[in-house]
């Protein structure tokens, strides 16, 4: 038996339950990646807010706070979705 055949024989059968599990894993990884990106954006927004405040460019601070709120809402919504799909 070649190595390739051996691996094929020990690979678990792709049952619907296993497929669902794989899909779940993929969704979880995507959610984590998306929340991480949102987090990086928020970090950048915080730096921009602090710089804007230091420069006296007050007009930038409020849109930045709004954008950060939207990012948080997105992250919270995804987290909430995950918690309800145990």
């Amino acid at each position: 038996m070649t190595d390739r055949n051996l691996h094929a024989s020990i690979r678990p059968r792709e049952t619907p339950a296993l497929l669902r599990q794989q899909q779940r894993n993929t969704v979880l990884a995507l959610v984590m990646a998306f929340v991480s990106v949102l987090l990086l954006i928020q970090l950048w927004l915080l730096v921009q807010a602090i710089e804007g405040a230091a420069k006296g460019e007050r007009a930038i601070v409020f849109p930045v706070t709004l954008a950060s709120s939207l990012c948080f809402l997105g992250a919270w919504r995804l987290w909430h979705l995950l918690q309800n799909r145990q």
């Binding site: 979880l28 959610v31 984590m32 929340v35 991480s36 949102l38 987090l39 928020q42 970090l43 927004l45 915080l46 807010a49 602090i50 405040a53 007050r58 601070v61 409020f62 930045v64 706070t65 950060s68 709120s69 990012c71 948080f72 992250a75 919270w76 995804l78 987290w79 995950l82 918690q83």
Partner: peptide, 25 residues
């Protein structure tokens, strides 16, 4: 899932920080 919860908490902390800067301004 716990790690995602942790990320969401950090997101809240970053929002809080940005909000405090906004409030101060």
């Amino acid at each position: 899932r716990e790690f995602t919860t942790f990320l969401t908490l950090i997101s809240g902390a970053l929002l809080l920080g940005t909000g405090l800067v906004g409030l101060r301004e």
